[in-house]
Design a protein around this nucleic acid. Structure first.
Lengths: 197, 197
DNA sequence: GTCTATAGTAGGATAGAC
DNA sequence: GTCTATCCTACTATAGAC
């Protein structure tokens, strides 16, 4: 198995996944036809099916790629020393998300798809779960270092407060995707001002 | 135009919309076929198309019904005197939502559909907008009455704080729909404990 | 108004040449 | 690996009888 072929295959899958993502963004996962993915990728039907066995396999891979980059951000955050106060975390997470996927709307589409597609649901759930764990660890450590809170107390506080941080990110996604003149800066300012520290 | 016929037609549309909602809940808006809506309603194709011109008309009507009940709740809330502190509002809104539509997942599906369907998007956006206005009025009034804040200051505070309340509701919808063992009570307790009053 | 049957079309996926 | 051509299924919507 020559190394070139592996890399080539991988690059080809990337192309297909990118094209599919662009198509899904426009019409959603279900309403996008294979013909549209084929046209967007500039390849042919046969070429696509050589890399993915079915349309749902493409959906699954695209979903994994979209949330996968989020997981990396979050885990890295957990390892960094907790310097900034917790209410600033939503901005960090949202900035990372925008850099990685451009428009938050695809995340909202993915959540919606997760309701009816168990595999997509697992992917979405998984990232929320890891997000919660990583943020909890961060918040707990921040309380311990900043306010000298004992570890067990800090863990309880973190468990209570983390849901608000996650909701701040999720609320951003919903509102930025649906509200035409959404003021992102005002939103993040409010989050930073009013979430507990 | 006899009155009976109007009521009958309306009741028939209700039946169809209810059946469609049940089907959409299972498979999503796009992936649900007319055959499934027909089977779920117990009617025939001809009967359905006598009341709705197309599948997308059914989607639109169902979406309107789902968010429509929310609007009523919210507007009523704005008229009630602000007695309970703002952080308790998400619980009220979520309780109302659960009573009206049963499972929050359909709301998440609707938001996702809104990304690609402009009419659904308008419906979803509209309810968020009205939610924001009604909650803002409530919060402002609460600050004025409880802390004696001047009206103009209270309005500014309300505008800042309202986004957190909305995010709390939206975050609930996302997490309750996707997280398998979601602890709704713990979530609402955190919201009530940490949102600003 | 409602039913059955079906027209017409677009969809996902494959076969076989290169 | 990739392309072209195509199969077959499933879909939405309608026509015509009652």
């Amino acid at each position: 198995m020559p190394k070139v072929t592996e890399e080539y295959r991988s690059a080809r899958r990337d192309e297909i996944a990118d094209a599919a993502l662009r198509a899904f963004r426009r019409k959603g996962f279900q309403a996008t036809s294979m013909a549209e993915i084929i046209a967007e990728s500039g390849m042919s039907a046969g070429a696509i099916y050589g890399h993915y066995p079915s349309k749902s396999a493409i959906i699954l891979d695209v979903a994994t790629r979209v949330v996968g980059s989020r997981i990396l951000d979050v885990e890295r955050l957990a390892q960094t020393g907790p310097l900034a106060p917790p209410p600033t975390l939503p901005r960090v997470l949202i900035d990372g998300m925008l850099r990685a996927i451009g428009d938050p709307a695809i995340m909202l589409q993915l959540w919606g798809e997760g309701i009816t597609d168990p595999e997509v649901r697992t992917i979405a759930w998984n990232v929320i779960e890891r997000l919660r764990d990583a943020l909890s660890a961060y918040i707990s450590l921040w309380h311990q270092r900043t306010h000298g809170t004992p570890a067990d107390e800090a863990d309880v506080l973190a468990a209570e407060q983390v849901v608000l941080l996650i909701s701040a990110v999720q609320g951003y996604v919903v509102q930025a995707s649906l509200v035409p003149d959404f003021d992102a800066e005002a939103y993040l300012a409010s989050v930073e001002k009013y979430l507990p520290r």
